[in-house]
Write a protein that binds this DNA or RNA. Sequence first.
DNA 1: TTTTAATGACTGACTGGTCAGTAAGTATAG
DNA 2: CTATACTTACTGACCAGTCAGTCATTAAAA
Lengths: 216, 216
Amino acid sequence: MKQDPGPATRGRRRKAARPGELTAAALSLFAEKGYAATRLEEVAARAGVSKGTLYLYFDSKEALFKAVITEGILPVMEQGEATFEALRDEPDRLLKAILAGWWEMIGSTELAGVPKLMIAEARNFPELARFYYEEVISRGRALVEGALRLGIEQGLFRPVDVPATVQVLMAPLILLSIWRTSFAVCDADACRPEKYLPAYFDLMLSGLRVQPQAGA
Amino acid sequence: MKQDPGPATRGRRRKAARPGELTAAALSLFAEKGYAATRLEEVAARAGVSKGTLYLYFDSKEALFKAVITEGILPVMEQGEATFEALRDEPDRLLKAILAGWWEMIGSTELAGVPKLMIAEARNFPELARFYYEEVISRGRALVEGALRLGIEQGLFRPVDVPATVQVLMAPLILLSIWRTSFAVCDADACRPEKYLPAYFDLMLSGLRVQPQAGA
DNA sequence: TTTTAATGACTGACTGGTCAGTAAGTATAG
DNA sequence: CTATACTTACTGACCAGTCAGTCATTAAAA
C-alpha cells in the first residue's frame, strides 16, 4: 500500500480521511486475527501510514478498538429505525425488510467483523460491552420485536414468546455472518448466502405465520 | 511423614490427573479472555501448579490450545452418533434429541467455550480449523441432516433444502451458547435457556412440520 | 519562518519458553 | 530402623523476543 499518486506524499495530506481509513484497516485486522493478536504497526501499514500517525488520531489501542465498534454500526441502526417507520403497516414485509437489511448492510459486509469482535472481547472490555448492548443490541431487538408484535396483533403471526423469538430469528443471520469471517476457507459451501438465506426465510416465516401456506 | 501410597494420591504427585486439570483451566481462561490474551502463568495457577509444570505436559501454548479443542468435543460426537442409531425410526423425536443433547452436553456447559474459541481463532490456526471442521462440524451436521432426511422421507417434515436448513437449525443453539460466555453480564435475561429453548423448538418445528399444529 | 502532518528509531513492560535446583517418594543395604 | 543413593513431579528465577506507546526529527504547506 503506497501513497496514492497525489501531488504531496508527506506533510499535510488528508487529515479528515485518516480516521476512517485507520478504523477500516483495524476492523479487518481485528476481525481476522483478534484484538490482542493484531499489531498496531500492521494496522497503520494497511492504512498506508506509519505507527506514529495512528497515535495522532487515537490515544491508544483500546481507543481505536472502541472507535471501530461504535463508528461502524451506529449509522446503520438509524437507517433500520427509518425502515421501521416506512413499513409499519405491512408487518410481514417489515420483518423481512429489517432482517434482510441487516444482512445487506452488516452481515454481508466488512462490518460483520463487529459482532464477531464484540462476542470475542466483551469480557475484556465490559464497559464497551455495556455500551454496545444498550446502543446496538437493544435497539436492534426493539425493531424486530416491534415488527413481530405488529404482525401478531394483525393476526399474521402466531402468538409466540416475542423476546425469545426475536433472538431465535436473529441468530442464524448473525452466526452466518461470523462464520464467513472464520470458516470460509474450510467451509466455502456453507458460506454461500444465496442458498442459506432462502432456506432461512422459508423456515422462519413458515414457523411464524398462522397460515402454513406462503411464498418465498 | 508417611502418606498413603494408594492410587488416589493427595497433594502433589498426580501425573495422571494433571493434563485434564490444565486443559480445563485453559479452556475457561481461553473462553473468557481469548487465546492471545491468556497468560500461561494464569492457566497454571488456576490448575494449582507452576508454569514450569505446564511445560512438562504440553510442548507449547499452541499444543495446549489444540488439546483443549480436541479433547473436549470428540467424546461428545460419539455419543451423538449413538443417539442417532437409537432413535432412527422416530425422526422428529430424533431431531429434537440431537439438538437438545447438543445443548445439554456442550452448549450449556463449559465446553461452550470450544465453538467460541474455534470461531475466534480459526484464521490464526488454519490447520486446526480444518481438523475441527472435518471431525466436529461435518460429523455434527451429518447427524442433523440424517434426522431431517428421515423425517422428510416419512412425510413428517416439509421437503426443505436439507444442508442449508441444518445450519439454520443449529445456529440459534450455537449462538446462544456463545452469547452466554460473552454477554451474560449485560444480558442476563436473554441467557435464560428455559425461555429461549421452548421458543426455539416451537418456531423451528412449526416451520419444519407438514402440519402446522403441534405440541412442544 | 512558522505550523503541522508524518515518521520511525527507541524504550519499557510483558510473556512464552527454559533449566538448574528442590524435595517428596522409593529402593536397597547394613 | 537408619542411612544412602536414586528417581521424578514440580518449582520459579531467568532470558530473549515482542509490541504498545513516545518523541526528536523531517518536510510539506501556509
